[in-house]
């Protein structure tokens, strides 16, 4: 499933907010944070501040960062919320 489709599928889920929070917590706690460019991290923090992680741009950035730093956890989180990549 492409990331665009993933957003549409995720958005329809009743637990979408929890999904976003779960993904955020992976990004906030991964030991592989060196794989995230500081500018990308700032963009994420900007979106968090604006409450926009549940919007397309925020969600796609979040997915991109989680997939890059914790590919296995990314799949696990999606599965837990009834989705697949």
């Amino acid at each position: 499933m492409g990331q665009k489709d993933l957003y549409s599928a995720a958005r329809r889920r009743p637990d979408f907010t929890e999904l976003v929070e779960d993904l955020l917590d992976v990004v906030l706690t991964t030991y592989s944070h060196h794989l995230i460019d500081p500018a990308e991290g700032e963009s994420l923090a900007d979106l968090y501040e604006r409450g926009a992680l549940g919007e397309r741009e925020g969600f796609e950035l979040l997915c991109d960062l989680v997939r890059r730093t914790e590919p296995q956890k990314f799949l696990e989180v999606l599965r837990r919320h009834g989705l697949e990549a």
Partner: peptide, 12 residues
């Protein structure tokens, strides 16, 4: 000990 952007998320 965390990158700045993470500390910012926590502070917000």
């Amino acid at each position: 000990k965390e990158p700045f952007w993470r500390l910012r998320v926590y502070a917000i």
